[in-house]
Simulated assay, not measured.
Amino acid sequence: MDMCVVLPEECISRIISFTSPRDACRSSVVSPAFKSAADSDAVWETFLPSDYQQIISSSSSTTTATLVSLSKKDLYFYLCDNHLLVNNGTLSFSLNKESGKKCYMVGARRLSIAWGDEPRYWTWIDQRLFPQSRFAEVAELKYVFWLDVKGQLETKILSSKTNYVAYLVFKFANSRRGFESRPIELSVYPEGSESETRRNKKVVLDPPRNSLPQPYQRRGDGWMEIEMGEFFNEHGDDGVVVCSLFDFDGFRDKGGLIVEGIELRPKNY
Rank of each mutant, 00 (worst) to 15 (best):
M1Y: 03
M3L: 13
M3H: 02
V5A: 11
E9D: 03
E9G: 03
R14L: 13
T19C: 08
S20V: 07
R22A: 12
R22C: 08
R22I: 14
D23H: 07
A24V: 04
R26T: 14
P32E: 01
A33Y: 08
A33C: 06
A38V: 05
D41Y: 05
A42Y: 07
W44P: 12
E45H: 10
E45L: 12
E45D: 13
P49S: 05
S50F: 11
Y52E: 03
Q54L: 12
I56Q: 00
S57F: 09
S59F: 05
T62F: 05
L67T: 03
K73Y: 08
Y76V: 06
N82G: 06
L84I: 00
N87V: 08
N88P: 02
N88V: 11
N88F: 09
G89I: 01
S92R: 10
L95T: 04
K97D: 00
G100I: 04
K101E: 15
G107I: 01
A108C: 03
L111I: 07
W115N: 11
W115F: 13
R120P: 04
W124A: 09
D126G: 13
Q127C: 13
R128Y: 07
P131G: 12
R134D: 07
F135P: 07
K142R: 13
Y143T: 01
V144F: 00
V144K: 00
F145T: 02
Q152L: 04
Y164C: 07
A166C: 14
K171N: 15
A173F: 02
N174G: 15
N174P: 04
R176W: 10
G178L: 01
P183Y: 07
E185K: 14
V188T: 07
V188A: 01
E194Y: 10
S195R: 15
R198L: 08
R198A: 09
N200T: 15
K201G: 04
K201C: 14
K202A: 04
V204D: 06
D206E: 11
R209Y: 03
L212M: 05
L212Y: 12
L212R: 12
P213S: 09
P213Y: 05
P215L: 15
P215I: 15
Q217P: 04
R218L: 13
G222K: 12
G222H: 12
W223C: 11
W223G: 03
E230N: 04
F231P: 01
N233S: 01
E234D: 02
E234W: 04
H235V: 15
H235P: 01
G236N: 07
G236K: 09
D237E: 11
D237F: 14
G239A: 10
V241P: 08
C243L: 06
C243I: 09
C243K: 06
F246L: 12
D247F: 00
D247C: 08
D249N: 13
F251V: 09
D253W: 15
K254E: 05
G255N: 01
G255L: 04
G256C: 05
L257G: 00
L257S: 03
G261W: 02
E263N: 08
R265S: 10
K267V: 12
N268D: 14
N268Y: 09
Y269N: 13
